[in-house]
């Protein structure tokens, strides 16, 4: 599979300055009695320290599932990882014993979720839940853990942290709850923070505050941030690089500026056209027609071809580049830009 040249080996050796996390050719499927759902189909990406990689895609594109596979928190069964490697600090997490994998979660890689209310245990105080990180991974006493919890709550700018440490999740507002989640996730200074739609459940002003907080924390700690979202605005503001996912594959990858201004994949192009633009008033939005594919019956060839306005089938297509028959690999289109489309040059206009 395609990886950024020279990136993965340095992670594999555990040294080097560049990527700290490398996902290679990762597959995830859900086996049920009736069928197999192919949620993730061979994705690869790397994250370096201080980098923010946005993973952009619709619901069901496999972005959350791939993140949970990296964390090792998928429910298996029904989920299975039939193929792939996840390299972190010189070790392939997928081949580690369960106990070693557990020790990575928290101090190595941590994760925050979309709905902070349901993601926090309602029957324990927030201080207890943050403190658990120190008790489980560093063996601190309950009292010491609580002290650290107050410090962390201060750090994520929860007002009156010392008073609120014994409050329960339902006593906090949505934005404050997400800060509690963030405090928990950064407690042990992880190298990678995966944020799965961290602002989707929040209102717009609070969204901006939470994203600012994440960016500030990243600047302080130099952690790599994997931002999973379907919000193009958030990606545009905070991400360095973006990987666009469709039907469990990465269909386009590059820097945010490049991808947003000049998409190389028709799906990305469609996404950009479906967002209102304040500078162009009066025009109609152009939604992408059709529905995302059923993941147990992904179309042959390019999975996007049934919805693609630029598709070329049969005689129209160049040899070996039939959109319904030949699956386009993720390939380097122009320097720094990869796309999985037979006709990316055309989309780009180069």
């Amino acid at each position: 599979m395609t990886t950024l040249p020279g990136s993965a080996p340095s992670v594999r050796d555990g040294g080097g300055s560049a990527p700290i996390l490398a996902v290679e050719d990762l597959f995830v499927e859900f086996r049920t009695r009736e069928n197999v759902v192919n949620a993730v189909n061979g994705i690869s990406y790397t994250v370096s320290s201080g980098e923010t990689l946005a993973i952009l895609g619709e619901s069901g594109s496999g972005k959350s599932v791939s993140a949970q596979a990296i964390m090792g928190i998928l429910d298996t069964p029904p989920a299975q990882v039939p193929n792939g490697e996840i390299w972190f600090e010189g070790r392939n997490l997928l081949t580690l014993p369960a106990e070693e994998q557990r020790k990575v979660r928290g101090p190595g890689i941590s994760m925050i979720f979309q709905d902070a209310l349901s993601s926090l245990n309602p029957v324990y105080s927030v201080g207890f839940q943050i403190g658990e990180m120190f008790r489980a991974h560093r063996g601190l006493s309950r009292k010491e853990a609580k002290k650290h919890a107050v410090e962390l709550m201060d750090r994520v700018r929860i007002p009156a942290a010392a008073q609120r440490v014994n409050d329960y999740p339902h006593q906090f507002s949505g934005g404050m709850r997400q800060r509690v989640m963030i405090a928990m996730a950064i407690a042990l200074d992880p190298k990678i923070l995966i944020a799965d739609e961290p602002t989707t459940a929040l209102d717009v002003t609070v969204q901006a505050q939470v994203m600012d907080l994440l960016k500030d924390l990243q600047r302080e700690t130099g952690m790599g941030l994997v931002l999973i979202t379907h919000d193009l605005g958030v990606v545009n503001e905070v991400a360095d690089n973006v990987a666009v996912m469709y039907a469990g594959r990465i269909v386009e990858r590059g820097t945010v500026d490049d991808v947003f201004t000049r998409p190389a994949h028709p799906y990305t192009e469609g996404l950009m056209n479906s967002v209102p633009n304040v500078e162009v008033k009066g025009g109609r939005l152009q939604p992408i027609t059709g529905q995302p594919p059923n993941l147990s019956k992904i179309p042959s060839g390019c999975p996007f071809h049934p919805r693609c306005a630029r598709r070329r089938l049969g005689a129209e297509a160049a040899p070996g580049r039939d959109c319904a028959g030949d699956r386009p690999p993720l390939r380097l289109v122009v320097p720094g830009r990869e796309a999985a489309c037979h006709y990316s040059e055309e989309v780009l206009g180069v």
């Binding site: 429910d75 557990r102 979660r105 979720f113 993601s119 309602p122 658990e132 489980a136 989640m181 928990m184």
Partner: peptide, 21 residues
Amino acid sequence: RADYVRTARAKGLPQRTIIVR
């Protein structure tokens, strides 16, 4: 299957803690 149990796993808590606590 609750979200907070998923969180507990993401926190790297030991299996026993996840089940009991």
